[in-house]
Design a protein around this nucleic acid. Structure first.
Length: 544
RNA sequence: GGCUCCAUCGUCUAAUGGUUAGGACGCCGCCCUCUCAAGGCGGCAAUAGGGGUUCGAAUCCCCUUGGAGUCACCA
């Protein structure tokens, strides 16, 4: 077979030479230990927590080493592409604080290793493919979809363990130059297949930075490297791009381990050095009684957009993801509560080899702790941004009374043990609604052991004695006095010993006042609440 | 089904052949307390099963079972 002629037959003469290509893509000049990683999504317009998790791993690895994190768009499958998909990816990640040093932008791109959109790199892949054809390592295949499914059917009938276009089944392997010419003349569509010399019986060892030592079989399938539209498959594009763009560490989901032998084989064939690999375990989710990896199609509630909409604060989500990423992060963070997750000495060695279940309850706990660290002004700023996008009504209310809202958010926030009762921004509206007449929806559930008569008496008398200038001690003394006056003890210990001796206790009296004024049974410290609420509103709500 | 990987409380995990199998979340109880949240103290809760190797196994080996992933002109 005259492979040079075959190559000329198949490819445009205007393709750049490999030398020209390597001149356009200089090797990166990296310092010792400096890493270059990338995120390489297909622009399907949908990102979920699992994508963010993988992106965070890549980003941390690069930036902790002083290296580069870039974005490459894998748009080789036009069918799956969604309008605005690139925008969704970039917006999603930048919302969560992950920024790219180079690569695709919504419009255009930055960096000298572009284009960063694979479809625009068609000629580059074709040049490498042509070279493989010339070397006799790739060949055109004219098999139709029907022929391929026939092939699979025959293999299954023969109880073949390894299905696929390989060895003796690869009939286009043996096409002569004339036969190829003839089919080309008939305008038959073709794909380019890599001619595998590997054998499934040959095992080799491979060291993955996360998974450790793996024993894999050589690939023996003649995989498609260029599709009939001249665009490469993932396998080929990955090999070419990650070399040319100088990726040092490929971080990707462990579903790629199965095809790793293909990639290593292709690297050898094109004569380029393979990067290091980190195959990370995917985030899992409970589906009925079994767990499975997060899916774009099945788990819309895990979309990044969903978390934003729910008001999960970026830093909280990131801290939670870090706890999943490195088992020793939590301990480190507990000892360094004032540091950013970005300061954590993340290590691939500490990554889990099997997939972790995504735990919303734990995320809430992490979030409450994080939000408790914020000042009232910081929390207000987050709330303002959030409500502006997702709750216009509330946005107008809080911006019109910003000082009041700041005071409300400050209740129980200062001091060594700040309240931890907010997990996400969407909860704040209900949490503080009773301060605002326009949101107030009282639910009057009074203590059942206090008669309506006593209750009304307590409320009416309290209205007369409440003074917003009282200190906390004076304030509470008044409530105690009021309680005692009507037969409710202010001594909780006494009450516990002998509840029958009293009508009730001061806690119940306080609850009456809380419910009457706040319209609910649970609030922060009512002294603070009443004070922030203001004399006028407190007195108004005490008016029966 | 073939191949690859994985297996410690419900969940995330620690324990590099010698620990009383540790922590965190959740749950339960008690304390504190004007309610709630927080906080403090305590409790429930795990080495999938079976064989080896060894003075000694969660840890090393084998088998079984279970789980995940993958077998496209998708990535």
């Amino acid at each position: 077979m005259d492979t040079k002629s075959l190559a000329t037959l198949l490819f445009d003469a205007s393709l750049p030479t490999l030398e020209e290509i390597s001149n356009t893509y200089p090797r990166r000049n990296l310092k010792e230990g400096e890493k270059v990683t990338r995120m390489a999504p297909s622009p399907t317009g949908f990102m979920h927590l699992g994508n963010l998790y993988a992106a965070l791993t890549s980003e941390r690895l690069a930036h902790l080493s002083g290296g580069t994190f870039y974005l490459r768009i894998e748009d080789t499958d036009q069918k799956r592409e969604v309008e605005g998909g690139v925008q969704a990816i970039i917006d999603g990640l930048s919302h969560f604080g992950l920024n790219f040093d180079e690569g695709a932008l919504v419009e255009g791109e930055k960096g000298i290793y572009g284009p960063y959109r694979q479809r625009q790199r068609a000629k580059i892949y074709q040049a490498f493919a042509k070279d493989l054809v010339e070397k006799g390592m790739a060949y055109p295949c004219f098999c139709s979809e029907d022929e391929l499914s026939d092939l699979r059917a025959r293999q299954e009938a023969e109880k073949e363990d390894n299905l696929g276009y390989r060895g003796k089944w690869a009939k286009c392997r043996s096409l002569s130059l004339e036969e190829v010419e003839e089919r080309l003349a008939k305008k038959m569509p073709w794909v380019l297949r890599f001619k595998s010399e590997g054998s499934i019986d040959n095992k080799f060892k491979f060291t993955d930075l996360v998974k450790g030592d793996l024993e894999l079989s050589e690939n023996d399938m003649d995989v498609v490297i260029l599709k009939s539209d001249g665009i490469p498959t993932y396998h080929f594009a990955h090999v070419v791009d990650d070399y040319l763009m100088g990726t040092t560490h490929v971080v990707r989901g462990d579903e790629w381990i199965a095809t790793l032998p293909i990639h290593l084989q292709l690297y050898r064939a094109v004569g380029l050095k393979a990067p290091k690999y980190m195959h990370i375990a995917p985030l899992m989710k409970m589906d009925g009684s079994t767990k499975r990896k997060l899916s774009k199609r099945k788990d819309p509630e895990l979309a990044l957009a969903f978390y934003k909409q729910e008001g999960y604060v970026v830093n909280c989500v990131m801290v939670y993801l870090m706890t999943l990423l490195n088992s020793n992060f939590e301990e480190w963070y507990a000892q360094n509560p004032d540091k950013s997750y970005r300061d954590f000495p993340f290590s691939p060695k500490k990554m889990s080899v099997s997939g972790a279940l995504f735990d919303l309850v734990k995320l809430d706990d992490v979030s409450k702790n994080e939000l408790a660290k914020l000042s009232n002004t910081e929390l207000y700023a987050l709330l303002e941004t959030y409500t502006k996008e997702f709750d216009k009504e509330f946005y107008h209310i809080i911006t019109a009374q910003k000082d009041k809202v700041l005071e409300i958010l400050n209740i129980g926030r200062v001091g060594p043990k700040p309240r931890k009762d907010i997990a996400k921004l969407s909860e704040i509206k209900d949490y503080i609604s009773y301060f605002f007449p326009e949101l107030y929806q009282p639910d009057y559930q009074f203590p059942e052991n206090i008669s309506e008569e006593d209750r009304n008496l307590l409320i009416t008398e309290y209205k007369d004695i409440y003074d917003e200038n009282d200190t906390q001690d004076e304030w509470f003394q008044k409530i105690k006095d009021l309680s005692e006056k009507h037969g409710f003890t202010s001594n909780m210990k006494e009450y516990k010993k002998n509840p029958e001796a009293f009508k009730g206790n001061v806690a119940q009296v306080s609850t009456v006042l809380r419910v009457q004024i706040c319209g609910r049974q649970n609030t922060p410290d009512t002294y603070e609440v009443f004070r922030v609420m203001g004399n006028e509103l407190v007195k108004a709500r005490l008016s029966l």
